[in-house]
């Protein structure tokens, strides 16, 4: 057998080497970009943790806000209570509305009506939150007193499109077969929706709502004009302005007093830990729901 002599060299020449180098560079750039994003996340979390952790204590979490210009350190209990009340009320409003809109869009709306509603949900989603803040101020507070309800409604507007979207996504994942099987068994549409479709997407709706809550609890702009002048002590009544974490961090960060910066860091740490942990858990749960439904 005569050895076949290739007419051209099969080994890469300079051009191939160059292409390989370019390829390596591109891959390195992509890797570095991803590492940079993680680095920024890490440095933000670390900065907040380093400066905030020293201040954190049981007293800090349970005492009233400090008296301005006094050496008393104070605490942030009113902020935690107020934020919980504001976001709780907002969720109580936004979740039923959001789920109902998603159900209408996915189950009932005719192709003529659906785009208009989808568009308004998308527009709400893209609305700058400061615009929502100004709107809420104009409706509820201009000419009246600041109150917690206004803040909750503002947060609910922020949450509504998020919940609608999340619900739509899981509703789309419910297998067609479920729907068809239920209808073939003679179940009516409302029974199919409430008895089959909604329960099987409940997990996704729940995690979507938790993600929306994690987003809303850090929102400052919708609250800034409507619940930013409040007392030092714990308040539960949403008919009055409620102390809340994001607005107070904002106020403290604008202050000249280094002690206020310390308080801002510690409060930011509490807020950030809550947000990051809840959204991480919700995301993991969501990934599980998706893979379970989307088989």
């Amino acid at each position: 057998m005569a050895a076949v002599e290739p007419g051209i060299s099969l080994r890469g020449g300079g051009r191939v080497r160059r292409r390989k180098v370019v390829n390596r560079i591109a891959e390195a750039v992509a890797l570095v970009a991803a590492l940079l994003a993680i680095f920024v996340l890490g440095i933000v979390v670390w900065s907040v943790a380093k400066r905030g952790a020293g201040e954190l204590s049981w007293n800090f979490l349970t005492k009233d806000l400090p008296i301005p210009f006094s050496p008393d350190k104070g605490g942030i209990a009113p902020l935690l209570v107020g934020s919980a009340v504001l976001v709780g009320l907002a969720a109580a409003m936004a979740v039923p509305f959001g789920v109902a809109i998603a159900l209408y869009l996915e189950e009932f709306a005719s192709p003529r009506v659906a785009p208009a509603i989808q568009l308004s949900v998308d527009l709400l989603n893209g609305l700058p939150s400061i615009v929502i803040g100004v709107f809420i101020f104009g409706v509820f507070v201009y000419g009246h007193l600041q109150n917690g309800w206004a803040g909750s409604i503002g947060l609910a507007i922020v949450m509504l499109p998020l919940i609608t979207r999340a619900t739509q996504e899981v509703l789309r994942l419910v297998p067609r077969g479920y729907r068809e099987a239920a209808l073939a068994l003679g179940a009516s549409r409302w029974r199919t929706v409430l008895g089959i479709i909604l329960p099987s997407s409940l997990g996704g709706i729940l995690t979507g709502s938790v993600l929306a809550i994690a987003r809303a609890v850090g929102e400052t702009a919708p609250l800034l004009f409507v619940t930013s002048i409040y007392g030092r002590s714990v308040a539960w009544n949403p008919l009055h302005a409620l102390p809340n974490a994001p607005v107070q961090i904002f106020i403290w960060s604008e202050s000249e007093d280094p002690a206020d910066h310390q308080r801002a860091w510690a409060t930011a740490l509490v807020l950030m830990l809550f947000v990051l942990i809840t959204s991480l858990v919700a995301r993991l749960a969501l990934a599980r729901t998706r893979s379970k439904l989307g088989r």
Binding site: V40, L41, V44, V48, G218, F250, S253, A264, V275, L284
Partner: peptide
């Protein structure tokens, strides 16, 4: 992919007021 993807999404989850605090002081 899962880890890096979630971490990048976490960057979006940081409340803006916290990012601003970090921005002004660090």
């Amino acid at each position: 992919r899962l880890v890096v993807g979630s971490l990048v999404e976490m960057l979006a989850a940081i409340p803006t007021v916290v990012l601003g605090l970090w921005g002004i002081l660090v």
